[in-house]
Simulated assay, not measured.
Amino acid sequence: MTRSTRRAETSRQSRRLLVEAATALFAERGYRRTTFEDIATRSGVSRGSIPWHFGSKEGLLAAVVEDIATRLTTTAGALDPGTVDQVLATLTAFTRAPSTGLFAKLIVEAEDPDAPLREVYVGLHNAIRAQVRAWVTRLPRPDGVGAEELSTVLLGVVIGIHQQWRVAPGAVDLDRTYATLAALLRSAGITAPTAQ
C-alpha cells in the first residue's frame, strides 16, 4: 500500500469515526449543545479534523443526516415490500433504529426557516417519501388515492408515531400501533402488491 493510499484510508476512517460520534452525540444532546470537543473526544479523532473534513459544524450535520438517509434508503430499497404487514414491519424497525432518534431530537431546530438544518431535513423527507412512494405504487389503492398523497400520509403517520414513542416509549406500543395502521390500510383495500 502506498503512502497516499494509506493517507486516503486514514482520512476515510477519520471521517467515518467523526460521523458516527456526531450521530450519537446529536441524538443524545441535540445539535446546538454538542461541541467539536465533544465529538473529538467521542471519536478519538483530533478536533482540528472536523473543519478539515466538513468545513463547519453545519457541514458535519449535513454529513450525518446524509449518511443516515443513505443507509435508510439503501436498506429500504433492497427490501421487497410484499404485504402491508411487511411494509409496516420495515417501518417499525426504522422507528426503533437508534439513529432515527436523531430526527426527533433535531426537528425543532429544522423548523426555523433560517436554520441550516432545514434544507437537510427537506432532502431527507424527500428521500424517504420517494422510497415509500416506490412501495405504495405497487399496492392496490382505492379510487382517488394517489401514490404521492398516500406516501405523504404514511410518512406523516410514521413521523408522528416515532415522535410520540421517543418522548414517551412506555405510553406507545409500537407493535400494536403499527398493527392498527395495517388494519386501517387493509380496510381501505390497500393489501398486497400488484404484479409488476
Rank of each mutant, 00 (worst) to 15 (best):
V132H: 06
V157M: 10
L79H: 00
E111S: 11
V153N: 14
A127Q: 13
R118F: 13
F103M: 09
P169A: 07
R141L: 03
V120K: 00
L18W: 03
A115V: 04
P142R: 08
A93P: 04
T177N: 04
A62N: 07
D173S: 15
R32A: 08
T75P: 02
F103H: 03
R29H: 15
A8C: 13
D173R: 07
S46A: 15
D175N: 13
L124D: 02
W165S: 05
W135Y: 15
P140L: 11
R141F: 05
F54N: 06
T34E: 07
T177F: 03
P140N: 00
A69D: 14
M1G: 14
Q131P: 01
R29G: 13
Y121S: 06
T92E: 15
F36Q: 12
R141Q: 02
R71M: 06
V157N: 09
D143C: 01
P113T: 08
A188C: 10
E119D: 13
R138P: 01
A179K: 03
R29F: 15
L154K: 08
I159E: 14
D85W: 04
L106S: 05
Y178T: 10
E20Q: 11
A168D: 14
L174D: 12
L124Y: 14
L181N: 03
V64M: 02
V64E: 01
A76D: 07
S99N: 10
T74K: 06
E119G: 02
A22K: 06
E119R: 02
T137M: 03
Q196R: 14
A63C: 13
R33W: 06
A40T: 03
V19Q: 11
L102A: 02
M1K: 10
L155W: 05
F103V: 01
L17N: 14
S56A: 12
Q131G: 08
S11R: 13
T180E: 10
A27T: 14
A97S: 14
S187L: 03
E109T: 07
A24G: 11
L181F: 12
A115G: 08
T34G: 11
T152M: 00
